[in-house]
Amino acid sequence: MSPEPAAAQRVREPVLEVRGITVRFGGVAALTDVSLAVSPGQVTGLIGPNGAGKTTLFNVISGLQRPDHGRVSIDGRDVTDLGPHRRARLGLARTFQRLELFGTLSASDNVRVGIESGNRRQRAAVLGALATDGQSAAVALLERVGVGAVANDPVGALPTGSARLVELARALSIDPRVLLLDEPCSGLDDNETGQLGTLLRDLATEGRAVVLVEHDMDVVLKVCDLVHVLDFGEVIASGTPAEIKAAPAVQAAYLGAELPDVVTPAAPSPATPGPAAPVDGATR
C-alpha cells in the first residue's frame, strides 16, 4: 500500500473523538468501550454486520442516545452532556438509516429549514457559497447531491434513493464539519452510488470529516481513507481499506461475505485546499 498521503492526513488533529463509549440496552451491550477519532479531510468508514452497533454509535455521537460510559468530543470540546441541537451548532450533521425527512414539506423546504436553522457562521457559509437567498441555496444544494429535479416535490412521494439524497442535502445545509452518513447508498443504483462516492470525496476535500456507515463494501473500500470494523458492539479492526480486507478478524465477522478486490482509496491530494471549494455540478 502507499500510506504516505493518508499518513499525512492522519496526523491532523481529529475533529471528532469518541472515547470508551459503552451503551447497554437492558442487559444487552450495544456498544462496549468503543473509541475512535475522525480527522478532517478524510472519509472514515464504519462497517460491521447488522446489529453491530453502528447506528447506536451515530446516535451517541449526535446526541440522541446517552452513553452509559465514555465521552464524545468535537474539536477537543467535550460535548457528551450537550443536546443534539448544540452539537449541530458545533458543526455536526447526520443522515438517518430510516429516513427522518420532514415528510409534509417539499424537498427544497426540507433543506431550507436546515439553512434557516444554522447559526450565523453556518448560514453565511451556505448562502455565501451557493446563492443569495434561502430558496435558491436550497435548490443548489439539492442539485449538488443530484436531486435538483425534485426540489418542489413533497418528500413523501420520493423513491428511497432520492429521499436519502435529500437528507444528505439537508445535512449539508448547516455547512457541517463532521458529516455522519447512515447507509446513504441503500436505494441508489450503481450509477448514483458512483456519483455519491465522488461527492463524498469532494466533501472530504473541502476539509470536512465524513463518517460513512455502509453495507456496500465496494463503496467503502473505494471511498474511505480509514475503516473501523464493529462487531457485537466492539471495534475489532481499524485500518486502511487494504488492511481491513486482509484482517482475519474481519473475514471472520463477514464469514462467507466476499470482499471485493482492494481498490486503492482515492487518495486526497497532500495539499488539501481549504474549505472554500467551488460548487460545481461535479456529481451531476
Binding site: L64, G83, A88, G103, V113, E116, S117
Partner: peptide
C-alpha cells in the same frame, strides 16, 4: 415563512429537527 416551516419540521421529525441545530 421560516417559523412555519420550522413548526412543521418539528412535528414531522423531532429527531431531525434537533440534529439540524434547532431547539
Amino acid at each position: 415563512h421560516t417559523f412555519g416551516r420550522r413548526l412543521v419540521a418539528m412535528n414531522d421529525s423531532p429527531a431531525a429537527f434537533a440534529t439540524l441545530g434547532m431547539s
